[in-house]
Design a protein around this nucleic acid. Structure first.
Length: 472
RNA sequence: ACCAGGGUAGCUCAAUGGUGGAGCACAGCAUUCAUAACGCUGCGGUUGUGGGUCCGAUCCCCACCCCUGGUACCA
């Protein structure tokens, strides 16, 4: 039995979770459940990126102590996952003391390899935003968009830099050879294009003042905090014991796959790899990059007010329906559009009329003749396994729904309600076996539904309340 | 601006150098084992625009338009 360590990206917790987070949670969960079914010893990690300055600013706005604010928001992410039937085995908070120690250990290892040095950083500070900007981020007058008319201060300070440039060629080789496999290929090419332009060293610390005294302290320098990405990525390691439980760490690290959104590819495919190379630690094996969700054709944004709370959808349609929609109706490799009307349409056509109705009609027929079924477990279909290995969740589900459709047609052809005796029994035996196969294949995607069906079709089969009652 | 990917039925997406396919939605028929469900039939497209190559292009080439992503310290 081999181990499988999968990580979800670590969400910023300066706001509530939205359906974009839900998509990633669900995808990670499916991959984890898939590997469990294959017999791998599997854990799925998520966590909270709690050390960003944005969190401090958001807490100030909410007039709440920072730690309290962080804890509450992180809790919301945890709850959404639970509501979505997503099972995180580890939830590592960035503000956790152990994580701080782990990150300081990573820093020291990079430092030991002479990859960290001091250098002056210059940026433009906006007093209104309490934030630094690059020249490119400012308007024509050299002022920030939030506070036109206010002059920015050009400020320099000493920071620690990481010798990212040192690792350019090494990382190119890792990615080109698929030793670090990036899926899909467009994202692999994007990372390579970035690398081939040459890497510059990056600043990996901020003054306490700039960091508002929040975050992980730089070892040996109490005046500086680590740049968030340096510690945030390390949650993948601290979550499995790096720096404080070597047995656990050795059992799980390296990650077999990091699941991330396209916006943070560079940090994972390049920065993270460089940090690990510098620290002489094992490297993750692959990165799966998903795309984003638009809502009614528009990007989600607070200003547009179209941010959707997954909990509201779950309360109307159920977690399993939301999972189904995200997995079956969105392409894993391109942006997908969400709208409640599409969710509802999918719910009624595929889940109520399709799967739910099929289960109901067969169960009723079985109940009439008191059919008894030996519980048998069936493995995933080869075709489904193939699709899942390629992260083609939508195509995998198409295969299952094709089976549903074929069984519906088969019932109409054979008209079992006109059969009697052995003919009827044989028919129902076969149909029930098909149902069990369908449910087995649904396990990674719709775990609760699969479980319900498998329970219903084991032993004496009875009618049960609709799995997915139609919604008007 | 440059680089990458994409523009095909109302919607989501397949496909191929040789008379454009599926699912959903919609309409009709049939039917009851089932959740006004299932099944069958039908409606529906000068395949972004303009050129070119070819006997023939949606698929190849050129130009243009539009969308998405990337182009460093910003999910």
């Amino acid at each position: 039995m081999s181990k499988f360590y999968i990580t979800n990206a670590i969400p910023y917790v300066n706001a509530k979770p939205h359906i974009g987070h839900a998509l990633e949670f669900i995808q990670s969960d499916v991959i984890a459940r898939f590997h469990r079914l294959l017999g791998d010893k599997t854990i799925l990690l998520c966590g909270g990126d709690e050390n960003a300055i944005k969190n401090v600013q958001a807490a100030e706005k909410a007039e709440q102590p920072i730690q309290e604010f962080i804890d509450e928001n992180t809790q919301l992410f945890s709850e959404v996952a639970k509501n979505l039937h997503v099972q995180f085995d580890v939830f590592q908070k960035g503000s956790d003391e152990k994580h701080h120690l782990a990150s300081q250990k990573l820093w020291k290892l990079c430092d030991k390899n002479s990859d960290i040095y001091k250098k002056s950083y210059t940026g433009f500070y906006c007093v209104g935003c309490e934030q630094f900007y690059e020249k490119e981020e400012l308007d024509k007058a050299g002022e920030c968009f939030e506070h036109p008319g206010r002059k920015l201060d050009e400020v320099s300070e000493e920071n620690y830099f990481f010798k990212l440039s040192h690792y350019t060629d090494q990382i190119i080789k890792l990615i080109e050879s698929d030793e670090l496999k990036i899926v899909p290929i467009v994202r692999k090419n994007e990372a390579l294009a970035f690398l081939k332009r040459g890497l510059k060293d990056i600043s990996i610390s901020r003054s306490n003042e700039r960091a508002k005294n929040w975050g992980v302290s730089v070892p040996g320098d109490e005046t500086q905090k680590m740049y968030v990405w340096f510690d945030a990525l390390n949650i993948y390691q601290s979550g499995v014991g790096f720096g404080f439980d070597e047995n656990q760490y050795n059992a799980w690290w390296p990650a077999d796959i990091h699941v991330i959104g396209k916006g943070i590819l560079r940090f994972h495919a390049i920065y993270w790899i460089a940090f690990l190379l510098s620290a002489k630690l094992a490297l993750p094996k692959s990165i799966f990059v998903h795309e984003y969700i638009t809502v009614n054709g528009q990007k989600m944004s607070k200003t547009l007010g179209n941010v959707i709370d997954p909990n509201e959808l779950i309360s109307t349609y159920g977690a399993e329906a939301l999972r189904y929609f995200m997995l079956a109706k969105l392409s894993p490799f391109s942006d997908g559009d969400f709208s409640e009307s599409k969710l509802k349409e999918t719910y009624n056509s595929d889940l109520a009329n399709g799967l739910g109705n099929l289960i109901a009609r067969i169960a009723k027929l079985c109940e009439k003749v008191a059919l008894n079924i030996q519980p048998i477990s069936q493995p995933l279909d080869e075709a489904v396994v193939t699709k899942l290995n390629e992260y083609k969740f939508n195509e995998a589900l198409n295969i299952v729904w094709d089976k549903i459709s074929r069984l519906d047609k088969h019932i109409n052809e054979k008209k079992p309600w006109t059969l009697e005796g052995d003919d009827l029994n044989t028919f129902l035996q076969e149909a029930s076996t098909d149902i069990i196969s369908i449910a087995s294949n649904l396990q990674p995607f719709l775990p609760e539904t699969a479980e319900k069906i498998l329970t219903q079709f084991s032993g004496s089969i009875k009618s049960a309340p609709s799995l997915f009652p139609r919604i008007q």
